[in-house]
Simulated assay, not measured.
Amino acid sequence: MIFGVLVVYAAVVSCGLPCFLRDASWSSRAPRLAVAMWLAAMISVVSVAALAAMLLFLPLHAIGDILVLLVQWCGWGDHSLTVSTRWTIPRTAGVVVGVAAALRLLHVAAAVAVAGRRSRVRHRHDVRLLGRFHPALSIYILDHADRSAFCLPGRSGGVVITEGALRALRPSELDAVIAHERAHLAGRHHLILTATAVLARAFPLVPLFGTGHEELRRLVELTADDSAARRSAPQVVAEAVLRLAAPPAPVLGMANTAVRQRVLRLLTADPPLSRPAVVGRGLIVAVLLLLPLVVTTVPALSDLGYHCV
Rank of each mutant, 00 (worst) to 15 (best):
L291C: 08
R188K: 07
C19Q: 14
D225N: 14
F150P: 09
A149G: 08
A136F: 02
R147I: 03
V12I: 15
V278C: 13
D126K: 11
P135H: 06
D303T: 13
L51E: 08
A109I: 00
R32E: 09
L129I: 00
S84T: 12
E181M: 04
L106I: 14
L267V: 12
E163P: 04
V251I: 09
H190V: 09
H123V: 02
I141L: 13
L293A: 15
A224K: 10
I192F: 01
F203K: 05
I161F: 02
A93S: 14
G4W: 05
R29V: 09
L208M: 11
P135E: 06
R230D: 15
A101G: 12
P171D: 05
R147V: 06
W76V: 14
A249C: 03
R217M: 10
H184A: 08
A109C: 04
L33R: 10
D23I: 01
A179M: 07
V251R: 11
G4Q: 06
A102Y: 04
R260D: 08
P292C: 11
T82P: 00
T196I: 08
T88S: 15
M54S: 14
G98C: 09
D175K: 11
E221F: 07
L142Y: 02
V237I: 06
M1T: 10
L56N: 07
G98E: 02
D23C: 08
E173Y: 01
L199M: 14
C308W: 07
V236S: 12
P247A: 13
V159G: 07
R155Q: 07
I63H: 03
A224M: 11
R182K: 10
G98K: 06
F20T: 13
V68I: 11
V251C: 03
A24F: 04
L106T: 13
G187W: 01
D225T: 10
R170H: 08
I284Q: 07
A40Y: 01
V251D: 10
V295P: 01
L106W: 07
E173T: 03
S232L: 06
A50N: 07
S25C: 10
V35Q: 12
Q261N: 04
P299Y: 01
I2D: 00
W26R: 13
R281V: 08
L58P: 00
M42C: 15
R281C: 09
A195C: 03
V198Q: 03
R124M: 12
A238D: 05
T211V: 15
V220G: 11
V251Y: 01
V278R: 15
V237R: 03
A115S: 11
R155C: 00
A179F: 02
D65S: 13
A34R: 03
R86G: 06
